[in-house]
Protein backbone atom coordinates (compact mmCIF):
# COMPACT_ATOMS: atom_id res chain seq x y z
CA UNK A 1 0.00 0.00 0.00
CA UNK A 2 0.99 3.57 0.21
CA UNK A 3 3.64 4.32 2.66
CA UNK A 4 3.95 7.72 4.06
CA UNK A 5 6.91 9.82 4.96
CA UNK A 6 5.44 12.37 7.27
CA UNK A 7 8.62 13.68 8.72
CA UNK A 8 11.47 14.37 6.41
CA UNK A 9 14.41 16.41 7.47
CA UNK A 10 12.77 19.54 6.17
CA UNK A 11 9.32 19.04 7.62
CA UNK A 12 10.82 18.65 11.05
CA UNK A 13 11.48 22.33 11.20
CA UNK A 14 9.37 24.00 8.56
CA UNK A 15 6.31 22.10 7.49
CA UNK A 16 2.96 21.25 8.96
CA UNK A 17 1.97 17.64 8.45
CA UNK A 18 -1.70 17.56 7.49
CA UNK A 19 -3.62 14.61 8.95
CA UNK A 20 -4.48 12.01 6.33
CA UNK A 21 -7.00 9.21 5.84
CA UNK A 22 -6.04 6.41 3.50
CA UNK A 23 -8.66 4.12 2.01
CA UNK A 24 -8.54 1.39 -0.55
CA UNK A 25 -11.27 0.30 -2.89
CA UNK A 26 -11.24 -2.39 -5.54
CA UNK A 27 -9.96 -0.10 -8.22
CA UNK A 28 -8.41 2.83 -6.43
CA UNK A 29 -6.66 4.23 -3.41
CA UNK A 30 -8.10 7.33 -1.80
CA UNK A 31 -6.30 9.87 0.32
CA UNK A 32 -8.04 12.61 2.28
CA UNK A 33 -5.97 15.43 3.72
CA UNK A 34 -7.16 18.20 6.00
CA UNK A 35 -5.54 21.37 4.71
CA UNK A 36 -7.68 24.27 5.90
CA UNK A 37 -6.84 27.68 4.51
CA UNK A 38 -5.24 26.45 1.30
CA UNK A 39 -6.83 27.64 -1.92
CA UNK A 40 -6.61 25.80 -5.20
CA UNK A 41 -3.96 28.16 -6.51
CA UNK A 42 -1.65 27.63 -3.56
CA UNK A 43 -1.83 23.87 -3.70
CA UNK A 44 0.78 21.75 -5.38
CA UNK A 45 0.45 18.03 -5.98
CA UNK A 46 3.17 16.21 -7.89
CA UNK A 47 4.59 12.78 -8.51
CA UNK A 48 8.34 12.25 -8.65
CA UNK A 49 9.37 8.66 -9.35
CA UNK A 50 7.28 6.76 -6.84
CA UNK A 51 6.76 9.67 -4.48
CA UNK A 52 3.54 11.62 -4.31
CA UNK A 53 4.17 15.03 -2.83
CA UNK A 54 1.46 17.33 -1.56
CA UNK A 55 2.36 20.83 -0.61
CA UNK A 56 0.23 23.86 0.15
CA UNK A 57 0.63 27.35 1.42
CA UNK A 58 -1.90 29.43 3.25
CA UNK A 59 -1.90 33.02 4.28
CA UNK A 60 -3.86 34.47 7.11
CA UNK A 61 -4.34 38.15 6.66
CA UNK A 62 -3.52 40.00 9.80
CA UNK A 63 -4.95 43.43 10.36
CA UNK A 64 -2.56 46.08 11.48
CA UNK A 65 -2.47 47.08 15.12
CA UNK A 66 -4.28 43.98 16.24
CA UNK A 67 -3.76 42.28 19.50
CA UNK A 68 -3.67 38.50 19.55
CA UNK A 69 -6.03 36.90 22.03
CA UNK A 70 -5.97 33.26 20.91
CA UNK A 71 -3.22 31.77 18.83
CA UNK A 72 -3.89 28.12 18.15
CA UNK A 73 -3.71 27.90 14.38
CA UNK A 74 -0.37 26.63 13.17
CA UNK A 75 1.06 28.89 10.54
CA UNK A 76 3.34 27.86 7.76
CA UNK A 77 3.24 25.44 4.91
CA UNK A 78 1.69 22.01 4.65
CA UNK A 79 3.70 19.20 3.17
CA UNK A 80 3.34 15.48 3.09
CA UNK A 81 4.88 12.74 1.05
CA UNK A 82 3.52 9.33 0.18
CA UNK A 83 5.34 6.47 -1.45
CA UNK A 84 3.21 4.94 -4.17
CA UNK A 85 2.84 1.21 -4.27
CA UNK A 86 3.34 -0.59 -7.54
CA UNK A 87 -0.35 -0.95 -8.29
CA UNK A 88 -0.96 2.77 -8.71
CA UNK A 89 -1.28 4.20 -12.18
CA UNK A 90 0.84 7.35 -11.97
CA UNK A 91 -1.03 8.99 -14.82
CA UNK A 92 -4.43 8.53 -13.28
CA UNK A 93 -4.30 10.57 -10.13
CA UNK A 94 -7.16 12.92 -9.53
CA UNK A 95 -7.18 15.75 -7.04
CA UNK A 96 -10.12 17.64 -5.64
CA UNK A 97 -10.15 20.41 -3.05
CA UNK A 98 -13.38 21.09 -1.18
CA UNK A 99 -13.81 23.01 2.08
CA UNK A 100 -10.17 22.67 2.98
CA UNK A 101 -10.03 18.93 2.36
CA UNK A 102 -7.88 17.57 -0.44
CA UNK A 103 -9.17 14.33 -1.91
CA UNK A 104 -6.77 12.32 -4.03
CA UNK A 105 -8.05 9.40 -6.04
CA UNK A 106 -5.31 7.12 -7.27
CA UNK A 107 -6.56 4.65 -9.82
CA UNK A 108 -5.04 1.20 -9.76
CA UNK A 109 -3.46 -0.17 -12.88
CA UNK A 110 -5.61 -2.48 -14.92
CA UNK A 111 -3.27 -5.41 -14.50
CA UNK A 112 -3.26 -5.15 -10.74
CA UNK A 113 -7.02 -5.08 -10.29
CA UNK A 114 -8.75 -7.99 -8.74
CA UNK A 115 -10.19 -10.38 -11.31
CA UNK A 116 -12.58 -13.07 -10.51
CA UNK A 117 -11.88 -16.25 -12.37
CA UNK A 118 -14.83 -18.27 -13.41
CA UNK A 119 -14.76 -21.91 -12.64
CA UNK A 120 -16.03 -24.06 -15.41
Amino acid sequence: MLRDRAITKKSFTTYITPPADLYETQDSHMIFLDMPGVSKDDLNVKVIDNRLIVQGKFEIEKPKDSEVLFNEIEKGEYRREFILSGDVDRNKIEAKLVNGVLTLTLAKREESKEIEIKIN
Binding site: P36, I73, E74, N99
Partner: peptide, 23 residues
Protein backbone atom coordinates in the same frame (compact mmCIF):
# COMPACT_ATOMS: atom_id res chain seq x y z
CA UNK B 1 -11.43 23.28 15.93
CA UNK B 2 -8.40 25.44 16.59
CA UNK B 3 -8.96 29.17 16.63
CA UNK B 4 -7.12 32.43 16.30
CA UNK B 5 -8.74 35.46 17.87
CA UNK B 6 -7.44 38.94 17.48
CA UNK B 7 -8.70 42.34 18.51
CA UNK B 8 -8.39 45.68 16.79
CA UNK B 9 -9.75 49.01 17.95
CA UNK B 10 -13.01 48.41 16.10
CA UNK B 11 -13.63 44.70 16.09
CA UNK B 12 -12.83 41.20 17.19
CA UNK B 13 -11.78 38.74 14.52
CA UNK B 14 -12.29 35.05 15.14
CA UNK B 15 -10.82 32.47 12.79
CA UNK B 16 -11.45 28.77 13.12
CA UNK B 17 -10.08 25.90 11.08
CA UNK B 18 -12.99 23.63 10.23
CA UNK B 19 -11.92 21.52 7.26
CA UNK B 20 -14.33 19.05 5.72
CA UNK B 21 -17.50 20.69 6.96
CA UNK B 22 -19.83 22.41 4.54
CA UNK B 23 -21.01 25.94 5.10
Amino acid sequence: PVVDISETDDEYIVRAEIPGVSK
